[in-house]
């Protein structure tokens, strides 16, 4: 579905339009559910979180600002933060984190293909590629899989403060690269 169409549906949702809401759900649920499930790794928890995400979208549709983000990016951001909040409140059992690592693709071909369509995505991936390997992994594991500093510290066998320093360096480097 086009970005304009999603935006139009969101605008209709601000007027309490239930059909627009259902259409918006149909067009975006798989993306949002995939985002949340990848972080929580448990369908029943993902169900609860995605339910609340769509309630939030219903309530806050008028806060969407097309000048700042695409409709899908705005919605995905709500979903990702809701999943991370849930995970921080109730962390996964350790063995589940190990599973997550196995399933984390390094750079799926599908992802790269998708990224080609969008200049911002192409630049972000180019800048990520410039990061040192383990720092790139940290950024991806945090953003996509919801790993905390402590999860990263355990996996990379570093003190939490070192992880924090690495993350900050990686983020600053990304920011500089994207700005250049």
């Amino acid at each position: 579905m086009s970005s304009d169409r999603l935006q139009e549906l969101l605008q209709r949702v601000t007027r309490r339009d239930r059909l627009a809401f259902a259409e918006l759900y149909d067009a975006t649920a798989a993306k949002l559910y995939g985002t949340v499930l990848r972080i929580l790794r448990e369908r029943s928890r993902a169900d609860d979180v995605v339910q609340e995400v769509y309630v939030t979208i219903w309530q806050k549709a008028e806060q969407f600002d097309a000048g700042r983000a695409s409709a899908i990016a705005w919605m995905a951001s709500i979903a990702r933060h809701a999943a991370i909040d849930e995970l921080r409140r109730r962390p996964r059992a350790p063995h589940e984190s190990d599973d997550a690592l196995d399933q984390t693709p390094s750079d799926a071909p599908g992802a790269r293909e998708h990224a080609e369509r969008d200049e911002n995505a192409r630049r972000l991936h180019a800048c990520l590629a410039e990061l040192e390997g383990s720092r790139r992994d940290m950024v991806r594991l945090a953003y996509l899989d919801g790993w905390s500093r402590a999860d990263l510290a355990a996996h990379f066998e570093q003190p939490v403060n070192t992880v924090k320093t690495w993350l900050h360096r990686a983020l600053k480097q990304l920011k500089g690269c994207l700005a250049s």
């Binding site: 649920a29 798989a30 993306k31 559910y33 995939g34 985002t35 499930l37 990848r38 993902a46 169900d47 995605v50 983000a69 990016a73 995905a76 951001s77 990702r80 693709p105 799926a108 599908g110 992802a111 998708h114 990224a115 969008d118 911002n120 995505a121 972000l124 991936h125 990520l128 950024v139 991806r140 953003y143 996509l144």
Partner: peptide
């Protein structure tokens, strides 16, 4: 945000 592009869509 573009990092999220690679998340696999999964039907609820």
């Amino acid at each position: 945000a573009p990092l999220g592009d690679e998340v696999e869509a999964i039907a609820p």
